[in-house]
Write a protein that binds this DNA or RNA. Structure first.
Lengths: 203, 203
DNA sequence: ACATTTGTTAACCAAACGGTTAAACTAAAT
DNA sequence: ATTTAGTTTAACCGTTTGGTTAACAAATGT
């Protein structure tokens, strides 16, 4: 061991930063607030992460590294298309219910700074659509599903799974449902969404 | 006329504020930057709108008032369900291509402050889902579409239409497409999305 | 035992921030 | 021509912000 104390403080900081950044975004977060939540002196944030930007990047990368493997399941798994859609939809919605801030955080911050994705590509295992593309093309050729491009299907799958979490305040207002009812709707989507997609592409 | 000059300045401010707020959000926007973009003195912002918060609210309300009637088309139009989906999808995507910042701005700021929707409800014509609900229930009963709740169908329609604009940096990265290709994909969705939805609910 | 590195703190700093002030300017009203 | 009300500006203000400093404490190496 080169360090005498274990990295408890460093982890506390990252955890606190995660909560604050995900709730308020890069611009809305305050270093003092993160320090308070971590119950340490503000100078420690800079001691361990040098700057707000670098602390933010550490949080973002960690969040992204949590999300990316989920998406990998639909792009590079070996199962059939129908199984993939069923499994992904069920697993992904379960996953996000446990991390409700995640998709919005990532989408929001990528919109704020789209170039950021390049930095991520070098650090986090990044799924590719190639395999999924071949699979969809094959099924279209075989006539088992309607004619659709892999990209459009991919967008549709992501949209139906992620959007309800990202736009929840908007949907709640328009659909006129309270928090409890909305949670029930999301829970039901674990099954509803895959039925919807499979129906949409089945011939 | 009680005022000698027309409200040119006030409009310039609102226009500049719109651009800055929609690009950077409430927290990321700077009053000085808005003033610069409007080519006026910073004090004028406060002369006309008193505070950053009130200026932001003016921008948000204007944006929301632009979006709400669009959603009204799917909820309260008199046409058949199939026509509605076709028309809404085509019109909405055309509309957003012209205002690409809009959905993300509204979603982002509503997530930052969900209570804000209450303020809006009192100021902007707010569509209700009731009529759409009856229509869907009727079609399900008649057996013309599969069993689905109006709320889930509404969420799916919104998701498929809005998400590709909100999450474009994410999708571009995962689907590995450049800006030009992505624009073509969005254009194609004007037809693709309605086909997808109608196929999904048709018996 | 002592020197060195690592961890932690309170106090501090310059810059940026939203907002204010007071004076100058403009144009319609009397 | 003078008053009056609305508009615009430069300079200013108090606070908050991310970040630094220097001194101190604790652990490690020799």
């Amino acid at each position: 061991m080169t360090k005498h104390k274990d990295n408890k403080t460093e982890e506390q900081i990252l955890e606190a930063a995660q909560k604050i950044f995900q709730a308020k975004g890069m611009d809305g977060a305050r270093m003092q607030e993160i320090a308070d939540k971590a119950s340490i002196n503000k100078a420690m944030l800079h001691y361990y992460y040098r700057s707000k930007q670098l602390l933010f990047e550490a949080v973002f990368k960690k969040a992204f590294a949590l999300l990316a493997p989920q998406l990998n399941a639909i792009l590079n798994d070996d199962s059939s298309l129908e199984d993939k859609i069923k499994n992904f939809t069920h697993n992904y919605i379960s996953f996000i219910i446990k991390h409700p801030y995640l998709p919005n955080f990532i989408i929001q911050e990528l919109n704020r700074n789209p170039k950021f994705i390049e930095k991520i590509k070098n650090n986090v295992a990044f799924p590719s659509i190639d395999k999924f593309k071949l699979q969809v093309q094959k099924e279209v050729k075989n006539g088992t599903i309607v004619s659709i491009s892999a990209e459009q299907l991919f967008i549709n799958i992501l949209a139906l799974n992620i959007f309800p979490f990202v736009a929840s305040p908007l949907i709640k207002a328009f659909a006129n449902v309270d928090d409890k009812t909305y949670k029930r709707l999301l829970e039901a989507r674990k099954k509803e969404v895959s039925d919807f997609i499979i129906n949409a592409i089945k011939k």
